[in-house]
Each structure stands twice: as C-alpha cells, then as structure tokens.
C-alpha cells in the first residue's frame, strides 16, 4: 500500500513538472547544445566545415575588436547594475519604511512603465535625448546652449541611462522585500544600545538587506550584459555591445560558428560573475536563517 502511494505520488510529481521539463529540454538545452557544437565548427563560405577545431575561440581571443566588445559589455552592465541598485535602494527604502498605508499604491505606480512596450520606451529615449530632442530643444530655447549636445545620444551613456531606467522596477522589488522582512524591533534595539539613525542603518539595515541587493544585482546584470535592442537603438557605434556583434556575425557576416563561440564566451562570463553573486548571497543568507 505504502509503496504504491509513493509511486503514485512520484508519478504525480513527474506529471506536474513533465511538461515544463520537456519544454526546457527542447527550447533551452537543445539550442545550447547545438551552439556548443556549432562553435567548434567553421564556416566555409556557404557550407559548414564540420571538423572539430578551436579556431573560432582563437580568433575571438586574438582579435582586439571582440575583446573590446566583451569588456565593454561587462563594464556597461556592471555600471548599469550598480547605478540601478543605487537608485532603486532609496525608492525601496522609502516605500518600506515610510509607505504606510500607501505601500501597495506606490508599488503599483512602479509598474506603470511596463504599460508601454520596451521598444517604445527605448524610442522615447531617442526622442528625449536626440539631436532635435526634448532636452536639446529645451536647453536651446532657454538659451543655455547654442548648438545641440551630441554626447547624450548614440554612445554608452545613453545605453546606461535607458537600461537603468528599464530595469529599475526589477531592482526595487527584491530590495523592498528584503527591507520588509527586517524586524523593526531590531532597529529599535540598535537605537536603544546607543546607535544614531545613520549608524543603525549601516550596522543593521544594510547587512540585512544584502540578500535583496544581491538578488537585484543578479536580476539586472544577467539580462543587461546580453542586451541587443538598447545598444542597437541608442548606442551608436561607440555604444555597441557584444550581442550586436553576435547578431552581425550570424546574419551579415554569415559566420554562425564564430557567433556561436562569441555567444558561449559571453555566457561563460555571465555564469562566472553570477556564481560570485550567488556565493555572496549564500554567505549572507546562511547567517540569517
């Protein structure tokens, strides 16, 4: 009886995760496997040369343009992550500590940007930052400048700005949750033991909010490093990132194996940096159970 119940339960479990499992297998692991395979082949004009070779990887690490793009992508996304988390923290803190009865309203307001598609929001940044855009024409009409500013669009600054804005809500929520979880009597205990507000922030609030901050960093970092649309639309040549190069290699340059190798190198970097974040998170979480 007991055994049959166990079998039935494990069958139930498989039935439950079966569909997503197959889905994941087909749409996630298979493409990655094919990419790995592809990255060890070479493009021979219109045909694929299926002999195993490390040529693509050698080319990536010997060609400065690829290294530059990878470095820039990592730099931009790390910078976006830092900026987003830094800007998201005060918002999350305000809602958690001073939101009062308006907490759910404020959280709801944060989702408003999602009411428009991401592509449209990027186009709006072009309108705001462009040569004849809102900022330039505004500054000209106020006689602050004579010529439109050119450094605000089509470079990495514009990419950072657009990405930080787009990902802010994703950073606010995990930080907010970790702040909500802090028992307020801990802060009172800190005050009671002589802390000023600033000291207790650094000694209690910040360390206890760390799991949320790390989660927010991961959530922002992973997608931004591979972002393709934003640098394409507002990055210009100077703001080009590795994903744009991968796209170029796949389509215009017709060199899918090189693109696959490039994609896998980026993926490995993401995995590596994410592991560092996860390690930090575990270190903090272990102390807080």
């Amino acid at each position: 009886m007991k055994v049959s119940i166990q079998i039935k339960q494990s069958l139930d479990g498989w039935r439950l995760i079966g569909t997503p499992f197959v889905f994941g297998l087909l749409l996630l692991l298979t493409p990655i496997f094919l990419m790995v395979l592809l990255s060890f082949w070479t493009q021979d004009y219109l045909d694929l040369n299926r002999t195993f070779t490390l040529a693509n990887y050698k080319e990536i690490f010997s060609h400065p343009v690829f290294i530059t793009l990878i470095k820039r992508s990592v730099n931009i996304s790390l910078f976006v992550t830092a900026l987003t988390v830094l800007l998201a923290f005060p918002v999350a803190y305000y809602i958690s500590f001073y939101g009062g009865k308006r907490k759910s309203l404020l959280l709801f307001l944060i989702t408003i940007p999602f009411w428009t598609s991401y592509l449209l929001r990027i186009f709006l940044w072009k309108i705001i930052l462009g040569y004849n855009g809102v900022i330039n024409s505004g500054l000209i009409s106020l006689n602050f400048i004579q010529e439109p500013l050119t450094f605000i669009l089509y470079n990495s600054n514009a990419v950072v700005l657009a990405l930080a804005h787009a990902w802010a809500p994703f950073a606010i929520f995990p930080i907010y949750v970790s702040l909500e979880k802090i028992d307020r009597s801990l802060l009172e205990a800190g005050r009671d033991l002589g802390d000023t507000a600033i000291r207790s922030f650094f000694r209690i609030t910040l360390p206890l909010a760390m799991p949320g901050i790390i989660a927010a960093s991961l959530i922002v970092f992973i997608p931004t490093i591979g972002d393709y649309v934003t640098p394409k639309l507002v990055g210009g040549t100077e703001g080009m990132m590795v994903a744009n190069m991968i796209q170029v290699q796949f389509s215009k340059a017709n060199n899918a194996p090189l693109a696959a190798a490039l994609a896998l190198v980026s993926l490995s970097i993401v995995v590596l940096i994410s592991l560092v974040f996860l390690f930090l998170n575990r270190k903090y979480l272990r102390r807080q159970i």
Binding site: D183, L186, I289
Partner: peptide, 16 residues
C-alpha cells in the same frame, strides 16, 4: 540612544 535605560524586547530582537 541618549537615555540611561536599556530594553529587553518581547521578540528579543537578537541581530540575526
């Protein structure tokens, strides 16, 4: 933080 009093909280408020 300026008073010569200290408190034992109901929830203990031990820093986790």
């Amino acid at each position: 933080n300026e008073r010569p009093t200290n408190m034992v909280f109901q929830s203990y408020a031990i820093f986790p």
